[in-house]
Design a protein around this nucleic acid. Sequence first.
DNA 1: TCATATACCGAAAAATTTTTCGGTATGCTA
DNA 2: TAGCATACCGAAAAATTTTTCGGTATATGA
Lengths: 118, 118
Amino acid sequence: MPYEKKIPVDLDCPLRLTMSLIESKWKSCILDELRSGDTMRPSEIHKCLPEAAPRVLDIQLKEMVEDGLVAKTIFPELPPRSEYQITELGKSLLPIIDSMLQWGEKHFDIFEKKYGNK
Amino acid sequence: MPYEKKIPVDLDCPLRLTMSLIESKWKSCILDELRSGDTMRPSEIHKCLPEAAPRVLDIQLKEMVEDGLVAKTIFPELPPRSEYQITELGKSLLPIIDSMLQWGEKHFDIFEKKYGNK
DNA sequence: TCATATACCGAAAAATTTTTCGGTATGCTA
DNA sequence: TAGCATACCGAAAAATTTTTCGGTATATGA
């Protein structure tokens, strides 16, 4: 296989399971982008997360589809077109994403001061 | 430096900030272990997380102390003794840990079926 | 005396993830 | 016709994290 995780998800404990689904660098951001429920094309997602290497987004989107967090529709056209949309399972993670977002906003200044502008 | 993260935390966005504080393999579990507020000695933590290599726990505990999630008390004795305790900042992450734990419990069977027992 | 336990560190190896680069195929526009 | 965009893939390089191993120091128990 081209690129594949050794262990798809961590079944050792429920906490590690949830973490393993979202801990890759951009997965939580992808869920956040898709939160509205609207479909997004890959190129849009890339535009919204310009710091992410396009290849990682491909890989992580693929894993999220495999994990059932995101659904993919491929249109058999040329040039190719496809769309991604958050699933119900993916939506059920949004409260977690929200609370992390809020926590980060609330405590941002602590870490800004501590680690910020090098 | 012996072992050090390139970038301590991710200040690009609040969501990535929160993720970067807990996404290392065992940090969320460490917070979960320390949740009661009682102090724990390193050897206890190691016993509670036997699958983690002791060295990673050392490293990750040290980072969590640096990040302010955990407090450390060193007793100047021999043989050495030290204690770790969750801080208020660390406690403020517990609702997130809780919701991940609950999510994992609720959806465990999906992933068990999908990826489980090889 | 020898083994064990304690807490931690450094170095190097191994594993994993992320990034970079190049390639596929085709339609549109200049 | 040339260049660009689209969506994706493979391979390899780079970066990062995790693991393994060995070492520090001293007290206790066999």
